[in-house]
């Protein structure tokens, strides 16, 4: 099964990043072979809708699940439509997280776990102040 993990770096020994729409990159991992490749997140500097664009990009990768820290309502809706399992609250080394996923240690999130725009630096969100 192909899954996506939000990542702080481009190897299995890097950490799971808590961010989704504003994460630097994803690792696309084949859970059977542990083969993987890194995918840069094109939406990292998007003006808005980063989570939505990220979810759309991952759905085009035909992944079946995404492992991340936080997922907001907009991205969650896109993952749902695409039939992609969302697993939130994941942290630590990516290799370990993938192993835990394979052993069935994680359960699918039923709802988004954070508000929209939570991954923006400074927590400014949209609408307010300078950009």
């Amino acid at each position: 099964m192909k899954i996506a993990v939000s990542a702080t770096g481009k190897s299995l020994d890097d950490q799971v990043d808590a961010r989704l729409g504003r994460v630097q990159c994803f690792l696309i991992v084949d859970t059977e072979t542990m083969e993987f490749h890194a995918l840069d997140n094109a939406s990292i500097n998007a003006g808005g809708g980063a989570g939505i664009q990220t979810a759309q990009m991952l759905s085009e990768q035909n992944v079946k699940a995404v492992l991340t820290g936080n997922c907001g309502p907009n991205a969650f809706q896109v993952f749902n439509a695409a039939g992609i399992q969302v697993i939130v609250g994941v942290s630590g080394v990516i290799r370990t997280a993938v192993e835990q996923f394979k052993s069935g240690a994680f359960s699918q999130a039923a709802t988004p776990n954070v508000a929209p725009h939570s991954g923006m630096k400074g927590g400014g969100g949209m609408g307010r102040g300078r950009r």
Binding site: I52, Q56, S59, V78, A81, A82
Partner: peptide
Amino acid sequence: AQVCEYSAIVVVKNKVLVFPGL
């Protein structure tokens, strides 16, 4: 979805999703 600059409309698995707030 290609036209929209703000990801207010996306198409996933042939399904159109609209985010009115965006």
